[in-house]
């Protein structure tokens, strides 16, 4: 059984991560934001991987993440 890491490296698929500002966060210039959300809904666990997030919440090669300077969606 290959580990998840090995598995994902053998899958020839790239996920485009689309970062969208939320609230008064400016369009990305700095790289550090305090809050990150998936589909304008919830914060993923910080140890979650992009592949799993894409599998569960992405589609058509894209995963939408929102970034913010203050808590936005609860």
């Amino acid at each position: 059984m290959a580990s998840a890491e090995e598995q994902s490296s053998t899958i020839d698929a790239k996920v485009m991560v689309r970062l969208q500002p939320a609230g008064d966060a400016p369009i990305m210039q700095q790289r550090n934001y305090k809050f990150l959300y998936v589909n304008q809904a919830f914060s993923p666990s910080p140890d979650q991987t992009v592949r799993h997030l894409y599998d569960c919440f992405g589609g058509e090669g894209k995963l939408v993440l929102n970034y913010a300077k203050t808590p936005m969606w609860g």
Partner: peptide, 14 residues
């Protein structure tokens, strides 16, 4: 608390 609520929301999304 935020971690807990995020899990609840993520699960409801699914």
């Amino acid at each position: 608390e935020m971690n807990f609520m995020s899990s609840i929301k993520e699960a409801d999304f699914i």
